[in-house]
C-alpha cells in the first residue's frame, strides 16, 4: 500500500508539466565548492552576457577527460571567437576528489572548476551519466545539452556557440 501513498503527488507533478514555462530553462540554484574550498552558489555563474559551457566530469571518466582535453586545445580560439567560458563540474566523491586539482593544473586546463562531491548539482540538473554538457546563452538559460563525448562532439558545440554569439536561434540543434 505504501507504494500508492505518493501517487497523488506524482500525478500533481505530472500535471504541472503542462504549464511549465515554454522558454529556456534557468540554472537550478545549488551550492558547489571551488578548488580552494569556497562555497559558491551556481546562481553566481555568469559570463558578461556571453555563453557558458557547463561540463559535468570526473577524474575516473575517460570520455570526460577526452572532452575537456579536446576543448582545451581549441579553447583560446573559441574564447576569441565567441567569448565563451567553460565551467567544469567535477562529480568526484571524497575518494577521488583529491585528484581534481592536480589533474586540472597538471593538464593545464584554463577552466573554471568546481567540486560537486555529493552530486547535489548533478541531481538538480538531472544528469545520469558523465560526461554531460550544457550550453547556456548570455542570459544564463540552458539552451542545449548533450550526454556522452565522442570525437566531433566539440564541432557541434562550437557551431551552437557561434550562433549564440551572433544572436541566432539555436532551437534547431
Amino acid at each position: 500500500m505504501s507504494k500508492l501513498k505518493f501517487l497523488p503527488l506524482f500525478i500533481l507533478m505530472m500535471s504541472m508539466l503542462s504549464f511549465t514555462t515554454d522558454g529556456n530553462r534557468p540554472l537550478p540554484k545549488v551550492d558547489v565548492k571551488t578548488m580552494d574550498g569556497r562555497v559558491v552558489s551556481t546562481s553566481t555563474f555568469e559570463n558578461d552576457g556571453k555563453p557558458i559551457i557547463i561540463s559535468f566530469w570526473a577524474t575516473w571518466c575517460k570520455p570526460c577527460i577526452h572532452e575537456l582535453t579536446t576543448i582545451a586545445d581549441v579553447y583560446e580560439d573559441w574564447q576569441d571567437e565567441t567569448g565563451v567560458k567553460l565551467i567544469a563540474i567535477s562529480v568526484d566523491n571524497s575518494r577521488t576528489s583529491g585528484g581534481v586539482r592536480p589533474l586540472v593544473n597538471g593538464k593545464d586546463w584554463d577552466y573554471e572548476v568546481y567540486l560537486d562531491e555529493n552530486k547535489d548539482f548533478q541531481r538538480a540538473m538531472g544528469v545520469n551519466l558523465v560526461p554531460h554538457t550544457f550550453i547556456l546563452n548570455g542570459k544564463g538559460e540552458i539552451v542545449w545539452e548533450h550526454t556522452a563525448f565522442t570525437e566531433g562532439s566539440e564541432l557541434e558545440m562550437i557551431a551552437i556557440l557561434r550562433k549564440l554569439a551572433n544572436g541566432e536561434d539555436v532551437s534547431g540543434h
Binding site: 585528484g99 586539482r101 592536480p102 586540472v104 593544473n105 597538471g106 593545464d108
Partner: peptide, 10 residues
Amino acid sequence: GYSQKGLGLS
C-alpha cells in the same frame, strides 16, 4: 597538494 600551470602534485 601543490600545483601550478602544467604540474600537479598530491
